[in-house]
Amino acid sequence: MATWLEWARGPIFIGAFSFMVLGYLRHLLVTFFEIRRHLRRAGDRTIPTLQIFVATLNWLFPLRKLKSQWLFSATSILFHIAILVVPIFLAGHIVLWARGTGLSWPAIPNHLADVLTLVAIVTAVALVIQRLSARATRNLSRFQDYALPLLIAVPFVTGFGVMHPGVNPFSYDATLLVHVMSANLLLVLMPLSKLSHAVLLPGAQYVSEIGWHWPSDAGSKVAIALNKEGEPV
């Protein structure tokens, strides 16, 4: 078991983490260069930057959006806070980073981490229940929309078990292995699934605006490409 664990948090973690970083980097670079390319050939390059900036901030920190569908919104906001804060600021994780890379940063107290972990688990399950219970979401949802919140809950459940062996009926090592491996799986899925919104969201409002900024001759060029020049309306 110890060897398995070493393997999971050694080479597999490094591979999964690098995959996540490189995948996200790819998304960022592609988006950045595509924005530049589209903007360069656009007929109208005036972009309402301030308006887009405000809209972007309003969605990155969506407290003002709580008004509509407040239960769903509040669940979602709590879920995001919990799953972002705990993995990054847990003392136990920071120790591992310090051991591996020499980097370290301030940690949150463990009892706060416990609370946030429970929040993450409860909200993940709540999100799935809300998805199932509202008609519109139920109809829209794909497999990943149910699977991802539940999969995200797994490292939190097992993490809680690792931190509190007294309440954990399973062996410590087995729980830790599931913890590390489920997190590894998530890292790999991050750039491949809708979780890519973690890096793409800040640019989304801007990209939506770019969609309306066409090259001045886009229409004529499409007509030429389709052999429809001079075709009657």
Binding site: T31, E34, V207, G211, W214, P215, V222, A225
Partner: peptide, 15 residues
Amino acid sequence: DHSSYGLALELYTRL
């Protein structure tokens, strides 16, 4: 090829 919808679609389908 000739217009600006590609990037938006690329992003929307991902996110």
